[in-house]
Simulated assay, not measured.
Amino acid sequence: MPVRVVESSAPSQVSGANSGKTSPPACTLLSVGQAFSGTQNVSSLQKDEAWRVNVRIQGCDLEHGYLCGTMEALNVPMADTPVVTFWEGEIVDTINYTFFTGKWEATPEDDKKHWDKFPSFSPFKSQVEIDGGKNVDLSNYPYIFMRWKEQYFVNVGTDCGLTIAGFYYVCFSCSDGSISGFYYDPNSSPFQKLELKSTNDGRSGFSFSSYELQ
């Protein structure tokens, strides 16, 4: 949910999906109720800036490559309170979704540039460059690749000075529950990095305030 800076936009492409493969393995650290905390770097050419961020998983359906949750950004300069958004995610499983986004103004070139920033992506780079990785087997890979798209603001209005027009490229580690991501929006500062770590088991430690999702 970065501050928007005007740049040029890019056209979207049509994505593909495949069938007949095995879904990513179930991971206890990627489950309903699990919480994560960390930072999002929103630095620009004018100044260095990072927001504290908390995320909680509200729904997860590996079979259909879907998950959703809430994201809370703290110490946002133009907001009087923490800003909470609801997001929905696509799990790259080459069954329901490939590495090519095909929407949200992301071209295959944008996809490749962002995925390439994750070291765990390197084994699939050559195949993804061909067809988005339609035939890549991710069923036993210790990392899960996702896209998170914020859908709406939960506790503030759209005039809060932030934008949720873009989305996050996300890499999740099944071994320790750490998350790294990069925000993409052609009208925002590029490659804003999201870094989160699992907070206990999601049932203790940090917890969100009570918000009603509609």
Rank of each mutant, 00 (worst) to 15 (best):
M1E: 14
P2V: 08
S9M: 10
A10P: 00
S12M: 11
S15L: 15
G16T: 10
L30I: 07
S31T: 12
V32G: 05
G33W: 07
F36D: 05
S37M: 15
N41V: 04
V42A: 12
A50G: 07
A50P: 00
V53N: 05
V55T: 04
I57G: 02
C60T: 01
L62P: 04
H64D: 15
G65I: 02
G65D: 09
L67Y: 02
A73E: 14
P77I: 02
M78Y: 09
T85C: 13
T85V: 15
W87A: 07
E88I: 02
E90W: 11
I91C: 02
I91M: 05
T94L: 00
I95E: 03
T101P: 05
P108C: 00
D110H: 11
D110P: 01
H114N: 12
K117P: 03
P123W: 07
S126R: 15
S126F: 14
G132W: 02
I144V: 13
M146D: 04
R147I: 07
R147L: 13
W148F: 13
E150A: 14
E150F: 14
D159Q: 09
C160A: 14
T163V: 02
I164L: 08
G166W: 09
F172S: 05
S173R: 10
G181D: 08
Y184A: 00
P186F: 04
K197S: 08
S198D: 04
D201G: 07
R203S: 06
G205C: 06
G205H: 11
G205F: 06
S209A: 04
Q214K: 12
